[in-house]
Design a protein around this nucleic acid. Structure first.
Lengths: 182, 182
DNA sequence: ACGAGATAGTCCACAGTGGACCGTCCATAA
DNA sequence: TTATGGACGGTCCACTGTGGACTATCTCGT
């Protein structure tokens, strides 16, 4: 029995395919929509993984449709591999935040650029928080259970914390000041 | 004038070398200690980047010391490149959280494994929060200014938010319950 | 005198990112 | 009617990032 472990991306693809055959293109979109903010998969990687999974017999390639569209579907082996993967312990998270890296060197940043840099990033986080909140309200209204909104809840917690952090930066960095909204 | 842009890792290395010559090994340790939680650089990458930076004339290789230790030092061109890099706008952050990915598929996780998985991760975050807090107290006591503790402040905000998120997960997932501490 | 562990580096396979590029199909506007 | 802009669907590549295996060297405590 050969090494049948899956990386997280492969596991996720199998998981998404439980709902039925999809093309690589669809899978990218589905992943983006499901967990975009806290997991990413790129086109390049999806097609690479799909090919590898098909080679390992975990997926079947469907007939090529219009625009070279090729759906993939789970095989029984793929379904089993997914079940095994989803019951392994998740790897530690990985956060890469260039803004924090730069702030480590804040002494070398031109004083007149820093506030703009900060407020741009802050605005982006505020935008995301608003998006998450409105999406959460919408799903709640549609009766989507809490269990299926935990990622969204995480996003809301996270963005809220980030905004608070921005608003508590030392005044010396935050010359333009921050107005906390919503 | 050729393309003189730096990736974030290269920029960070140059930044760390402002304090004087260091070896790759030291740089890994310094980076880990400075911003370990929100930026990472691995051995392999450091040596790869150092070689590339030296080839571009941004670093000078020092004499090889004991244990093949080779220090690198900034050239004037390197110093200038750093200054340019640190004044570019930081790229968007990138968060990869396998736990959230798995929870997206929580319906397929064995009910008896889920609580353990969650509490392990929660405990790890609690540990980190404690570390950050104690380090922050220590640095504050040493008179390190707030400006040099913003990353730590971010860590504290972040871990606090994550713990709150854990504690508010639907009871159906969190069978063992969570006791918020500290 | 020796073994454990820290120091320092090399190398490789794999994973992940972003952009360039290519064709196809469809709606709509001139 | 045509053409054209944009959405769809995929390939390919260079670069960046991760983790582990492997080597050698030096230090320190017993």
């Amino acid at each position: 029995m050969r090494d049948d472990r899956l990386n997280a991306t492969a596991g996720a693809l199998l998981g998404l395919l439980r709902d039925g055959p999809r093309s690589g293109y669809d899978l990218v979109a589905a992943a983006e929509q499901l967990i975009g903010g806290f997991w990413t998969i790129t086109r390049s990687q999806v097609y690479r993984e799909l090919a590898a999974l098909a080679d390992r017999g975990l997926l079947d390639r469907g007939r090529i449709g219009p625009r070279d569209r090729q759906p993939f579907q789970l095989t029984p082996a793929g379904r089993a591999a997914f079940r095994r993967w989803v019951n392994t312990s998740p790897e530690p998270e990985n956060l890469r935040i260039p803004l924090l890296l730069m702030l480590t060197f804040a002494d070398a940043i031109d004083a007149d650029r820093l506030p703009g840099m900060l407020s741009d990033h802050r605005a982006e986080h505020a935008r995301r928080l608003a998006t998450y909140r409105s999406l959460d309200r919408e799903l709640t209204a549609q009766g989507v259970p809490e269990e299926q909104r935990v990622t969204l809840a995480f996003g809301i917690s996270y963005e809220t914390a980030v905004l608070r952090w921005f608003d508590r930066l030392p005044a010396s960095m935050n010359a333009t000041g921050g107005t906390t909204q919503s």
